[in-house]
Amino acid sequence: MTPLHIGFVGVGRMGANMARRLKEQGYALTAFYDSHHPAALSLASELQAQAAHTPAEVAKASGIVITVVSDDAAMRSIFAENDGTSLLAHAQDRLFINCATLSPEIHVDIERLVAARGGASLEACMASSIAQARQGTLYLMCGGKPEVFEKAKPLLGALGKTVRYIGPAGEAAKVKALVNMVMNSNTAALAEGLGLGDALGLDLTMLREVFSQTGAASRVLETDGEDMQQRAHDCYFSAAHAAKDSAIALDLAAHAGLHLPVAQATLTQYRRLVELGKGELDKSAVAELTFKERSA
């Protein structure tokens, strides 16, 4: 094992494509773990690495471990204290780069736990999607100790077009939560605009073009507008993750003493999608709640 031997914990859509990117860039990949073991088996076979049965096996084989898990509970599980199967079993001299959108306090706790065992950790929050992970053009917002960021920066440069240091542990997670809160609100607003346009009998292709040339323009219009019109909701960023991330931002708002009614309404919409069994559709599926004939 050398410092540039890299393992992954969490090889879903994002993690797997990040691993493929690093393999193409000549990095040595050691082991993959995923709670859905067939995903780890498949990627390990593809990239000639080990399919690990525990996070600890990944840390043992790797100098750097990149984690891309789904939520706070999953993160606490893979960094569980007093658990011989967790990443902490082999934290000494390791660098953990944690890429999931999580509550800021989780990143603070992980940094403390890892440091107590002689390792280092960095949050590298991603404001991009699957295609960017595959192409190495992620937008990465990083939080942690500056010296740890500098150590990780060359590797992060192979994954991201923009690699930005935000501040101490937890700070990048705050920024990422706000990015996703605004993105989700924009998505829900676009769905309402297109849904109302449809109910009024307007040509939606024309309407999207007008939106793009006026104050209604947005990045979400570019990525989701046509999908909403065509009901094409293949998942790039799931409705369930949209709900999770908006909830993180609203928790931060509550602690700051702020009421954010637009963000709260957006969260309600995404939670409705999840309750309807559509949580694994793309966030563009929020349009299914706003087009008259669809919501019925």
Results as ranks from 00 to 15, higher is better:
Y27A: 06
G118I: 10
L194P: 00
A216T: 02
T2N: 14
L200R: 14
N98T: 12
A49T: 04
P38N: 05
L29H: 09
T223H: 15
C235A: 14
G84Y: 06
T290L: 15
L289I: 06
R134W: 09
E81C: 08
Y165A: 03
R219E: 04
A217F: 12
I78E: 00
L190V: 03
T268L: 12
N180D: 13
P3I: 05
I78Q: 01
A59Q: 01
T214Q: 13
F237I: 06
M228D: 02
L267H: 08
G118C: 11
P55D: 08
R117Y: 05
A172Y: 01
L196N: 00
V179T: 11
S128C: 12
L178Y: 12
I6T: 11
A31L: 08
T162A: 13
L88T: 05
S185R: 01
F79P: 02
A120G: 10
I64M: 13
L202Y: 11
D234G: 15
S129T: 14
E24P: 04
G257Q: 04
Q132R: 11
M228W: 07
D34R: 00
C142Y: 02
T85E: 14
L221G: 02
L204H: 03
T30F: 08
A40D: 04
A56Q: 00
R112P: 01
Y236K: 12
S246V: 15
L102S: 03
F291C: 06
H255E: 14
G84P: 10
T268Y: 10
L281T: 02
G167V: 01
E81A: 10
L122C: 09
R272I: 12
P154H: 13
T187M: 13
T214N: 12
L87C: 04
F211T: 00
S86T: 05
L252D: 02
A31E: 03
V108C: 09
G170P: 06
A31K: 05
E222Y: 07
E226I: 09
A133S: 14
R13C: 04
M228N: 03
Q50R: 14
E209R: 15
S246W: 01
A177I: 06
G170M: 05
L207D: 02
H53E: 15
E293F: 13
D83Y: 08
T266A: 09
L95Q: 01
G257M: 10
